[in-house]
Nucleic acid binder design. Sequence first.
DNA 1: GGCCCCTCCTTGAACTTTAAACAAATGCCC
DNA 2: GGGCATTTGTTTAAAGTTCAAGGAGGGGCC
Lengths: 177, 177
Amino acid sequence: MKAPASAPTPGSVAEPPEPRWLTDDEQRVWRSFMEGVTLLDDHLDRQLQRDAGMPHVYYGLLVKLAEAPRRRLRMTELAMLAKITRSRLSHAIARLEKNGWVRREDCPDDKRGQFAVLTNEGYEVLRQTAPGHVEAVRQAVFDRLTPEQQKSLGEIMRIIAEGLQPAEAGADLPWLR
Amino acid sequence: MKAPASAPTPGSVAEPPEPRWLTDDEQRVWRSFMEGVTLLDDHLDRQLQRDAGMPHVYYGLLVKLAEAPRRRLRMTELAMLAKITRSRLSHAIARLEKNGWVRREDCPDDKRGQFAVLTNEGYEVLRQTAPGHVEAVRQAVFDRLTPEQQKSLGEIMRIIAEGLQPAEAGADLPWLR
DNA sequence: GGCCCCTCCTTGAACTTTAAACAAATGCCC
DNA sequence: GGGCATTTGTTTAAAGTTCAAGGAGGGGCC
């Protein structure tokens, strides 16, 4: 009599299923991914800290504001765009406000609401530091990849991003915590 | 008379070169990348904080130690493998030591040196939490990508990672700071 | 209106990371 | 050996992030 084909769980006792370990190939991919992300994060944070006096995330917030109509966004909306928690955003905006780059405004429609508004000074910082930042991103990423790789990277990361923010209610999304 | 073909710098005054802005396609790629990375980082940090009581980076340190001969590594070597600064590593190991998951040992050959050694308790934590972590990584990444995309992602991120740690002396690498 | 639940945003404490400075040991050059 | 730059790792303080809690307003339901 042959052993069952789907074998590794013997006996009648309930056992945890054997974890689906990563293959060697998958491990190599995952390691490259983590190393690349870690180094890139470090690199861009450092570049922006040096040239713009703020971390990458904060810079990203100013960019979102600059692109928004009337250069303003509700806090939760901004948190959602930046994929961060509202708490983190509150602290970040507080610091950017202290720098004079952002100002808060009450929302007339909803007294709980706050707008974060990009100031002229904030816009000016962005204008002056954007070229250096773009250049850093180019050097580190786009200049090294073929057009096919760029396209592929975009698709892959979009899939991952969308997978982590499912449409269903009850998803554990940072800006809803 | 026609304008020069490579035109945008007029007159004889030296001007900064027009920055090489990202095209719309490139911007979309870059945004997907940042969003995916931000959400993934958040997701894994949260999963590990909940199930293993430590952030993703700390978990990664334990993994590196588990894979090393005699489950130990010199501090700088570990920082290099994890792509982080020695300062950050010092703090991290201090905390892991407080948890009893890592222990420090003097290096006999170099009195400045320290080994970080994975304890049996640390190994045990790893053994118990690894399946959950692998599962999270699978769900978020590998299960969503075709084999071609996985391969592509590996190549792309390896290129980026290598680009950020050039062989030349004087490179600004975290573990040399 | 009164009640309850939910959303919006902030706060303070604990924790993690960065930045700068430092002590000790090494290694090199003479 | 003596001097000096470099390497190794830690430490302190400041900055940033997470976590849990909470105040205040909105909105539905009775």
